[in-house]
Amino acid sequence: MSTGKPRTPLRSIQAKNYRSFVDVEVEFGSFSVLAGPNGSGKSNLLSVLQLVRDTARTDIPTAVDQHGGYEQLHRATGDAGPIELTIKAEVTENASSGAPDEYILTLDKDDAGIRRTEDFQYKRTAGRGRRLGFALEGVDAVKVQGNRSNKTSSLTLTDARINAHWLGEGPSRFVSFLSSIRYLDPDVPAARRPSRFDQRRLAPGTANLSAALQQIYDAAPDAFRELVRDLRQCLPGLDSVGFETRGGDAHVVVAELHENGLRRPIELADASFGTVRMLALLTALHDPDPPNLTVIEEVDHGLHPYALDVLVDRMREASGRTQIIAASHSPTLVNRLESEELILCDRDPETGESVIPVLTAGQLAASRGTSGRGLGELWYSGVLDGVPSVG
């Protein structure tokens, strides 16, 4: 099913003086997996997307506070400059690989507090021509470049009113892209509980898993059948997935697993950790109308190695509807990836600086071709840098 959404809206992230990063720039495809040992910077890179998403949903000071404050985000070295986060993407109407949208968020702090600047450039018209750009310093001014306008405003990029006639639809579209990023880190205890019937869009922590599942059942029966088929490959005794609706003051729905040979269905409250987590991931990956970008933290956590075959195939297939960026430290999962799908991460033991990527896709392909072994085997054996940590 075609949704008209770009398969690879996010082209790259550059992060300077942010957490474990001095200056890293990482490019992404439609399906990318960050792999590396604990502390190598995988989660820090994904948290860049969390931060810019949250600034789009609320405001910059609130988002910074939610993420631990400036000191927590800033790389604590004596000569470090301000935090600078750059997002390059193809979101607005006329964006392309040669003229991507470019958003830069700069954060600094002095005695007066946090200073922030947002810079955004995009191509307002089709064909050849300059991109339109503007900078927002704090909330005091908008400086428009390209058309030499000196208009000023007390807006931020996340303010819906910035969609003025002299800026076009671009900023609004870009903010919508940032705010719609799905950052998935299933909270299994919460996912086990009954869901309110009216909360049917999958929540980031999947606390409404049962209701989101029923939404797919109701709205996309074919997708639901494929979801159950995938789950059967991980749970050979599974027959079907059903639902029980319960009344009362809060109308709720409970998902149930029907297994062969059992008289009674198994509610999610009684299902195993790995089963609930896999079901949550499959619910996101079979969503018929997903956001443009889905980010998955520790995608292999709690899953049996046999389930990783299913998971990799499903993420690869889903990347035709939503760009997938996931983090893993499983050699078993990495072994199932192609060279262009893997981004290896490591950390300098002396400086603490994250190194991402460790090797290019071409270097990974060359190592794989020379050895005839899978990427996971090469990584685990130490042929590639960023060896998985034990435990």
Rank of each mutant, 00 (worst) to 15 (best):
G69L: 13
G69T: 12
Y70A: 03
Y70R: 06
Y70F: 15
Q72K: 05
Q72D: 10
Q72C: 12
Q72S: 07
Q72A: 14
L73M: 08
H74S: 14
H74N: 06
A76T: 02
A76C: 04
T77W: 02
T77D: 02
T77S: 03
G78F: 08
G78V: 10
G78E: 15
G78M: 11
D79P: 00
D79E: 13
A80K: 00
A80E: 02
A80Q: 01
A80L: 05
G81V: 01
G81R: 01
G81I: 09
G81S: 15
G81E: 13
G81P: 08
P82G: 12
P82L: 05
P82K: 04
I83A: 01
E84D: 11
E84V: 12
E84M: 12
L85W: 09
L85P: 04
L85I: 09
L85K: 05
L85Q: 04
L85V: 02
L85M: 04
L85F: 08
T86Q: 03
T86A: 05
T86D: 04
I87T: 08
I87F: 07
I87W: 02
K88R: 15
K88Y: 01
K88T: 14
A89W: 06
E90Y: 02
E90T: 15
E90V: 11
E90A: 12
V91K: 10
V91H: 02
V91M: 11
V91N: 06
T92Q: 03
T92L: 07
T92M: 01
E93S: 12
N94A: 12
N94W: 12
N94I: 03
A95N: 08
A95C: 12
A95H: 08
A95W: 00
S96K: 07
S96W: 15
S96F: 11
S97W: 13
S97I: 14
G98K: 13
G98L: 10
G98H: 10
G98N: 14
A99I: 05
A99S: 09
A99Y: 14
P100A: 07
P100N: 13
D101R: 01
D101F: 08
D101C: 07
D101E: 10
E102L: 11
E102K: 15
E102M: 09
E102C: 10
E102G: 04
E102D: 12
E102Y: 00
Y103V: 00
Y103G: 04
I104S: 03
I104E: 14
I104N: 15
I104D: 11
I104C: 12
I104K: 11
L105W: 13
L105R: 12
L105H: 11
T106S: 11
T106C: 05
L107W: 02
L107M: 11
L107P: 03
L107H: 04
L107S: 05
